[in-house]
Design a binder for these strands. Structure first.
Length: 574
RNA sequence: CGGGGCGUAGCGUAGUGGCUAGCGCGCCUGCUUUGGGAGCAGGAGACCGGGAGUUCGAAUCUCCCCGCCCCGACCA
């Protein structure tokens, strides 16, 4: 039983000045966490109970799915990460340190290498597969900008699993098992979430989905089609290419457009010249970039920006991407800033990547590749040739769903889980092979699956709070029932104590506010701030032999006979 | 790394060159109070982020450093 009289807890009346988002503010105020350094937090008793509840749910579901738990060190030697290039590729996000002999170590940001090597050390036959193992481990990433309390920390706890299969079909099967286990886990955690298609990013691999918990303070943006259920991270959102008939479009024609280096100024001139009707969407924006040292041109409708994240996600293999700067224009005199057009790009072997909205056959107004001139009737396929279609324009609410063509909505969310079909990248690099039934050596194919355990605590807090405090789902709350004794003499305290014991013996987790020196107001405020799902008040109503039972989330209150209290509480918790 | 902001007691804050750095919450002692963050009285607690400088005098002005928060870039 948690007794408030002795619990190591100090709640704060004011919001901490450095906390912005609800989860951070309330977890600090309610005495769950304390900041130690940027992105590094301690868990106090209430917080740690909550954290362990989340961890328990995750572990139970992993075990139930037949995955086996292991535990690696957080402190790791350099060598395995050298073999997969990540010692260098991971960059400054990797916490690196040296031991007294000067040998390189790191604090693990993720453990693909260790899992792969562990399996390699033990298994060598296809008969041992499939295998899925996991750990719940503290991870370290020296984030450029930790933020939002425990949502994005530099030290955090993650459950990471890895599956090992001989065949691609096997991988898909393991992937689906994890997916199902994740659904169960997040359902039990009481989280609202969407499963969205994602890009696999730095981890490599093919299929990848994210579990996103919608909330305003989330840092991921995703699209959702409310009609058909299509959901995707904006980076992975697909745009359908619809070719346009261009037979009736006249020949390319140059037009004088003095002093119109921007889309807005161009639209203005066009409308003045041709009697209106033009918008930014009729113009073609040619954005020049340097991709790994090579100049490329990206075509988007004039009313849209290029989304660099989407672009990079869809340009496979490109490590470094940046926009053209003035000095780049200076080096390339054929590219006239403000008047770039795709016609003639092939002459300079400039590759054109087009957003699918620049459909084959579509006609545009665009730059004429010389100052103060534009061209109209510039037709894709006739006047310029696109190297490939690539999703790269900013995504907007109301864009067309690639599945059912209805408008999509855009929402923000916290990423609470991510599942990948990694494939053979790590197994290849670390030479994890098994003998197949023909006695031939085969590279194993892997999946990787993560749940942010500490982040899930914050995500639940984000989704489950109100103005006055936290409102935990019962499985996660520090206690299921929070019993408050109020009054001057011993009776309510004795009754509350007895009731607490009864609740406990009927299997409930109980917190008892047995403080004699705190006023009722303080106890009520604390109970509401702490956020256990049921609050029972032993006080005034005792005169009628009753106690008051409150549901934290709904505010619903009722008085029940003392003898019926345990039953009433249990019933509300079902 | 770019832009903005902040750093004064455990927490929230006042104090823009001048006496012993002020207030609220929290904490300690005593009395009172006990259904919505109680009242009175007394008390403890601050190298004013650090260093250097300007000045008769610096929390306050200048420079450097450190730390933190927010936006952007970046990010399983």
């Amino acid at each position: 039983m948690l007794r408030m009289s002795t619990l190591f807890l100090r709640t704060l009346r004011d919001d901490p000045a450095d906390a912005e988002v609800a989860s951070h503010r309330l977890l600090v105020r309610a005495g769950y966490i304390r900041r130690i350094a940027a992105g590094v937090y301690s868990w106090l008793p209430l917080g740690y109970l909550t954290f362990r509840n989340v961890e328990r749910v995750v572990r139970e579901e992993m075990d139930a799915a037949g995955f086996q738990e292991v535990h690696f060190p957080a402190l790791l030697p350099r060598e395995p990460y050298e073999q997969t290039q990540r010692w260098s590729e991971y960059g400054p996000d990797l916490f690196r340190l040296k031991d007294r002999k000067g040998a390189d170590y790191l604090l693990g940001p993720t453990h693909e290498e260790m899992f792969t090597l562990m399996v390699k050390g033990e298994y060598s036959s296809y008969k041992d597969l499939p295998l899925s193992i996991y750990q719940i481990q503290t991870k370290y990433r020296d984030e450029p900008r930790p933020r939002s309390g425990i949502i994005r920390g530099r030290e955090f706890v993650m459950k990471d699993s890895y599956s090992f299969d001989l065949t691609d079909e096997g991988l898909i099967d393991s992937y689906n098992k994890h997916r199902a286990a994740y659904v169960k886990t997040f359902d039990r955690l009481g989280l609202k979430y969407n499963i969205v298609s994602a890009v696999s990013g730095a981890m490599g691999g093919s299929g990848s989905e994210e579990f996103l918990a919608p909330c305003e303070t989330g840092e991921d943006t995703y699209v959702l089609c409310e009609k058909c259920g299509y959901a995707a991270n904006v980076e992975a959102m697909k745009t359908v290419v619809v070719p346009v008939d261009s037979k009736d479009i006249g020949a390319l024609e140059e037009i004088d457009t003095p002093n119109t280096p921007t889309i807005d100024s161009l639209v203005e001139v066009l409308n003045a010249k041709f009697g209106g009707g033009f918008t930014g969407a009729d113009t073609l924006k040619n954005v020049l970039l340097i991709a790994d040292g090579k100049t490329i041109c990206v075509l988007v409708p004039g009313d849209r920006e290029v989304d660099l994240k989407r672009l990079q996600a869809n340009l496979p293999g490109v490590q470094e991407l940046r926009l053209f700067e003035d000095e780049d224009f200076a080096k390339n005199p054929h590219l006239v800033k403000g008047y770039v057009g795709p016609q003639g790009a092939s002459k300079h072997s400039l590759p054109l990547y087009a957003d699918p909205r620049i459909a084959p056959g579509s006609s545009w107004v665009t730059g004429a590749n010389k100052k103060n001139a534009h061209a109209r009737n510039v037709v894709n396929g006739r006047d310029f040739k696109v190297e490939s279609y690539i999703d790269c324009a900013e995504v907007r609410a109301g864009d067309t769903c690639p599945k059912c063509a209805n408008p999509v909505i855009i929402d923000r969310a916290i990423e609470i889980g991510h599942i990948f079909q990694l494939g053979r990248k790590y197994a290849q690099a670390l030479d994890l092979t098994v003998l197949d039934s023909d006695g031939k050596s085969q590279v194993v194919t892997m999946g990787s699956y993560g749940i942010g355990v500490s982040r899930a605590v914050a995500a639940i807090a984000e989704q489950s709070h109100d103005e006055i405090g936290l409102c935990w789902p019962q499985e996660i709350a520090p206690a299921q029932v929070h019993i408050v004794a109020t009054g001057k003499d011993d009776t309510p305290f004795d009754v509350a104590e007895k009731l607490a014991l009864q609740c406990e013996s009927s299997g409930l987790r109980v917190m008892l506010d047995d403080r004699r020196d705190a006023s009722p107001g303080v106890k009520f405020k604390d109970a509401e701030l702490i956020g256990n799902p049921i609050i029972v008040i032993v006080g005034k109503a005792l005169a009628d032999g009753k106690v008051e039972v409150r549901v934290r989330k709904t505010g619903e209150r009722s008085e029940v006979l003392l003898a019926d209290a345990v039953g009433a509480v249990s019933k509300l918790l079902v």
